[in-house]
Design a protein around this nucleic acid. Structure first.
Length: 269
DNA sequence: ATATGCACCTGTGTGC
DNA sequence: TGCACACAGGTGCATA
């Protein structure tokens, strides 16, 4: 579910927890994308949260003693702040009991998410992801290097987390609309002007989406249960059959590598 | 190395 | 009402 803007919104809503201590850990379901380590609870208990950062779609909780809690929400994951006495919901897999009666709850119906504790931040998962385009905006020259010799569709390239970290199906579709590029265009065939528009669209869409707290399509919420509102500005995502806000042409849906792509056949070439 | 297809899961909506 | 099916914000692995 969550892409870069949603994860960033969750991170910001979690910041009041910096300084909190983890008093206890409860794990009800260990079978996530990768099973939760056996010593997960022991390695978290008693630690203090010193910082909460994000890289792409990953959240990193820096703890005292040099440890790091890595979290990924997969398709359906949520991290919520609650009272410890709040009732447990279906798919509440992990609860971190903090001081002052609050709790951090990880809920994930599909279990595509990930939780892991490491010493430092040497996670194999993190080594597989590229730069974060919000933290480090891409120049046109860098985009040119990225597309050089790549014959796959630009949409698939932008979704490849090893190249850029954080873009998923919503934001890639929205960025390509803003840039006026069809999702099926071969990456290597994009010219200088298209790459310039892409660089601008990348920054504008991500910054705007973060400002609006991300996209709440069906059930995304930040850690305090608040929805985002960027979905109200979606130009193409999930709008097949509706009119393009720019020119009135009917938005099309196609399938690329098993995922839906949406575009305006007139505004995007 | 590059590109694709499928598996991993549960929930929801649609059409019969 | 029940049932079958398609589809969903992601990633990892097997296969060409």
């Amino acid at each position: 579910m969550p892409e870069l803007p949603e994860v960033e919104s969750i991170r910001r809503s979690l910041l009041p927890l910096v300084g909190a201590r983890i008093l206890d850990v409860e794990v009800r379901e260990r079978r996530l994308r990768r099973p939760i380590e056996r010593d997960f609870e022991a390695r978290l208990r008693g630690r203090r949260i010193e910082a909460i950062e994000r890289h792409g779609k990953y959240l990193l909780f820096t703890l005292d003693g040099g440890r790091t809690l890595l979290a990924h929400l997969g398709m359906s994951g949520r991290i919520t702040r609650r009272r410890q006495d709040a009732s447990q919901a279906t798919h509440d897999h992990v609860r971190l009991l903090l001081d002052q009666g609050s709790a951090l709850v990880f809920n994930d119906p599909r279990r595509f998410g990930l939780l892991s504790v490491g010493d430092g931040r040497g996670f194999a998962e993190l080594e597989r992801v590229g730069r974060d385009p919000l933290a480090e905006p891409c120049s046109v020259d860098e985009l040119r290097l990225l597309v050089r010799g790549r014959k796959l569709p630009i949409k698939n390239l932008l979704m490849d987390q090893r190249r850029l970290a954080g873009l998923g199906n919503i934001y890639v579709n929205e960025i390509l609309y803003q840039a006026g590029i069809r999702p099926g265009r071969r990456a290597s065939r994009l010219g200088r002007s298209a790459l310039e528009r892409l660089a601008v669209a990348l920054q504008n869409v991500l910054e705007r989406a973060v400002r609006l707290g991300g996209s709440s399509i069906s059930d995304y919420r930040d850690a305090d249960g608040r929805t985002g509102s960027f979905q109200e500005e979606h130009a193409v995502y999930d709008r097949a059959g509706e009119a393009c806000r720019g020119c009135g042409t009917t938005i099309r849906r196609i399938t690329q590598s098993g995922r839906s792509s949406f575009y305006c056949p007139r505004c995007q070439r």
